[in-house]
Each structure stands twice: as C-alpha cells, then as structure tokens.
C-alpha cells in the first residue's frame, strides 16, 4: 500500500543553463523542493565585467554532471521515480542553453522519461508556486537582467504578456548605471545598497509612454543618469553617488509600481507575483509591500532571494504544470534563444 501511494507522487527534475548558472533541481508534486543545486559562474565572469557567452558555455560543460549528481543525491531518489525532466529551452544564450537541453535529452532517452521544454520566464513566475499556491487570475511582475514584463495569467500554464520593455531591461539599466558610477559587476545590488544611504534628490525622468500602455522603457533614464554624471564632471562638481543611486532607483520603482498597480486594477487579479533576479532588490520589495501588501482581496507574493535569481527549481515547478497539461517535447527539442512564452498557450 505504501509503495502504491509513493508511486502517485509526481517527481520532476528541472535543468536550467540559460545564462551563467548551471542548475538542477527536483520538485515533488509541483510545490515541494526536494533538491535545488546552483553552480554559479559569477566569479569567472566578473573579470570581464559581464557574462561572456563562450566562457559560460564552457563552464556549463564542466559543471553539468556534477550538478545533476548532487541534485539526485540531495533528493534521495532514482531515475525510476522521475515523472518528467523539465529543461529551459529559451530564451537565453544559445550556447549555454544547448548544454542543459542536450543533457536533459540524454537522460530522458537513457531512462525513457518524458521531456518538457520550459520557457525561462514561465519558470521565474512559477518560482512563486514553491512559496504559495497560485490563485487566478493573477499578475506577475517579471524584472531581471534580461526582462521587464507584466504577465497576466488566467489559469495554469497560460501566459499573456500585457507589457514589456521596449529597450533595456531594468536589470540592464542597473548594470549600466553601476558602470557609470564605477561600481563592480554585477551592479544591481550595489545600486540598491547605495540607494538606501542616499536621498532621491536628483530629478530624473520617468518613461510613462502613451496613455494606458503597460510597456516599459529604461534607456532614457539610463542616458539621463550618464548625462548627469557627465555634466557634473564638466562643471567640476561632485555628484553624491548615494543620491544618484537613490534617484535612479526611485524612478525605476515609480514606473514599475505604478504600472503594476494600474494593471492589477484593470485585470482584477487575486494575486501579484514578483519574479526575476531584480526581485532581490530591497527597494523594489519594500515599495511593493508598501503599496500592495495591505490591499484587501489581493495577495502579494515575493519569493525568497534564492528563488528569484536563476535556478532550476522554478523550471521544474513550471514543468510540473506543463507536464500535467500533457505537454511533452521530443528528442528533437532545440535551444531557442528567442523563444516566445506564448508557445505554452497553444498546446
């Protein structure tokens, strides 16, 4: 009887190699984390001031089986327990994605386990399901180095992008501003830290775009910061980096929070989920909590830091739902650096 009960558990292995983290996780029944292993390459890329794709790909090959083994050991299960293998098929760096995709296919073939290709952003959103059960309809604010999006979900596995950045992602703007202030890579956490020590006293633009739009634009803000520093230098004035960081961060947060709030009202959502690496930003977390935590009828979910940055638990969590919906990938699954999240909707 016990045997039989165990057989009904769903175990999903997730693999994520879209950028500079080699990650494998195992999730039980969609929400329980049995293993979550992340090998970060950040130390290697720091000396280049950003992620170098060829070097990222090389590190993934070095790490992949080590990380796989550690995840299986952590979970204490074997292949025969696995219901499916979920892997990030895109978007991301193509050479990096290829390592995860091909490792996933090799395991799926070797043990006859179903394969599920997952969109990276679907993963980021589903990291929230490891914290709390999702309630629909919901809105997710996705903010990371490569993405700034508002994603509306009416049901599991269905994603509608209602707003996205037209130029730089918020995370990119953070990195560029950090470089302007000569802060080390990655710059986001440094700006966040400085912002808390300064006052938002410098006037910087906020890009609202046309009336009613949920899209974002951060390149103008980034240029304004660079110009402010440049002009001060030419006049021989000293800019207080803390104040500039605080002003920049305030501008980003104002736009994110205002547009999110408007979308929440229009779509009458039950939950707001924060997703993506920039969700680690203390200023953004505080602003969202301040604005939305006490909204009656709307639940705000902010995952812990380790689930906001790239990881494979989120890929397994999304894969769990897609697998339940009957979505399988073939052994011809490819890495797709420009993958559209809507691929999950049509199936």
């Amino acid at each position: 009887m016990g045997e039989f009960m165990n057989k009904k558990d769903q175990w999903i292995m997730g693999i994520e190699t879209s950028c500079d983290e080699t990650a494998v996780a195992i999730i039980k029944n969609g929400r329980e984390m049995a293993a979550n292993v992340v090998a970060s390459q950040i130390e290697s890329h720091k000396r280049f001031g950003g992620v170098v794709p060829e070097i990222a790909s090389r590190h993934h090959v070095e790490q992949i089986t080590i990380v796989l083994e550690e995840a299986l050991n952590q979970a204490g299960i074997t292949y025969s327990d696995l219901s499916a293998i979920a892997v990030t098929e895109g978007p991301g760096l193509v050479g990096a994605l290829l390592i995860g995709v091909n490792a996933a296919k090799a395991i799926a073939f070797a043990h006859g386990i179903p394969l599920v290709g997952v969109h990276h952003i679907a993963g980021h959103i589903y990291a929230n399901r490891l914290v709390a059960e999702m309630k629909f309809p919901l809105l997710s604010l996705v903010v990371s180095g490569g993405h700034t999006e508002l994603v509306y979900m009416e049901e599991h596995g269905h994603f509608e992008v209602i707003g996205e950045t037209r130029d730089d992602a918020a995370g990119e703007a953070y990195d560029k501003v950090a470089r302007t202030l000569s802060l080390p890579y990655p710059g986001g956490p440094h700006i966040d830290r400085l912002a808390h020590e300064g006052e938002p006293s410098i006037n910087l633009p906020r890009a609202w775009l046309e009336e009613g739009s949920y899209d974002f634009s951060f390149s103008g803000l980034k240029s304004a910061v660079i110009n402010t520093v440049h002009n001060a230098e030419q006049r021989g004035e000293k800019i207080v980096p803390e104040d500039l960081a605080a002003s920049f961060q305030q501008s980003v947060i104002d736009v994110l929070v205002t547009k999110t709030g408007r979308a929440m009202d229009e779509y009458k959502v039950k939950q707001l989920l924060l997703a993506g690496g920039v969700a680690a930003n203390k200023g953004l977390r505080a602003a969202l909590e301040d604005k939305f935590a006490n909204n009656p009828g709307i639940e705000l979910i902010i995952p812990p830091l380790s689930l906001c940055t790239d990881n494979a638990a989120m890929i397994a969590a999304a894969g769990s739902i897609l697998f339940e919906k009957g979505i399988h990938s073939g052994l011809d699954l490819n890495a797709n650096p420009g993958l559209d999240i809507a691929i999950h909707n049509d199936k």
Binding site: S57, V61, L68, Y79, G95, L98, I99, A106, A110, H111
Partner: peptide, 19 residues
Amino acid sequence: SYTGVRIGVTIAKTLAWTL
C-alpha cells in the same frame, strides 16, 4: 566547432554518467 563539439561531449558525458 566549439558548439558542435560541446553538443556531442555533453550528450556523451551525460549518457555515460547516467548509465
């Protein structure tokens, strides 16, 4: 080709490890 070799090596080492 860097990418080509990596595809073969990734599949080979994962198969060898998992089997």
